[in-house]
């Protein structure tokens, strides 16, 4: 079989398999900035989460974080959490700590220096956000940030909290 045909066959089977399965969050571990590992599902016990991938060199990511912090505070009583995952390489890690601490954000920040989680969760472009329901079902994903997107985020979070109740 020619290579392109083989590739098409593989892709066809992939999509077939995908179409018969639910879209749920894989059982992965998060690593905090001080190297502690926590299963991602332990955060879902409290309510829905928004997983957000960012890096220091990504200007839209930092713009978006201001609103993510606002959401994390506003909806904390409803069990909503923001899990912020930095994907800078170790070369920038000391600056990440400094940035996060000075910013005074209220959400948890994790690190993914090898971009493993980012790629495993289908990321390619930043910022990359995944909205996850308490049962692990992925509600939606969002790539990029433009001013005004925060309104869409707020709607999605409210919908998740409505679904979670």
């Amino acid at each position: 079989m020619h290579k392109p045909a083989k590739l098409l066959l593989v892709l066809g089977i992939v999509f077939l398999a995908y179409s018969v399965t639910a879209q749920s969050l894989p059982k992965l571990k998060l690593t905090s900035l001080d190297n502690r590992q926590t299963p991602i599902y332990s955060y879902l016990e409290q309510g829905p989460v928004l997983i957000n991938f960012w890096s220091l060199s990504c200007a839209p990511c930092k713009r978006e974080m201001k609103y993510l912090d606002e959401f994390a505070q506003t909806y904390a009583d409803s069990g909503f959490q923001v899990l912020s995952i930095n994907i800078d390489t170790p070369r920038s890690m000391s600056k990440v700590r400094s940035y996060v601490r000075a910013s005074g954000y209220h959400f948890s920040v994790f690190k993914d220096p090898r971009n493993e989680l980012f790629r495993k969760l289908g990321g390619r472009v930043m910022p990359y956000s995944i909205f996850v329901l308490p049962d692990g079902t992925i509600k939606e994903k969002h790539v990029g940030y433009a001013p005004g997107d925060e309104k869409k985020y707020r709607t999605a979070i409210k919908e998740m909290l409505g679904m979670a109740k």
Partner: peptide
């Protein structure tokens, strides 16, 4: 590398 916080100033 050394990083930390001095008051509200993040230093790296």
């Amino acid at each position: 590398s050394l990083s930390g916080l001095v008051g509200n100033l993040g230093l790296s």
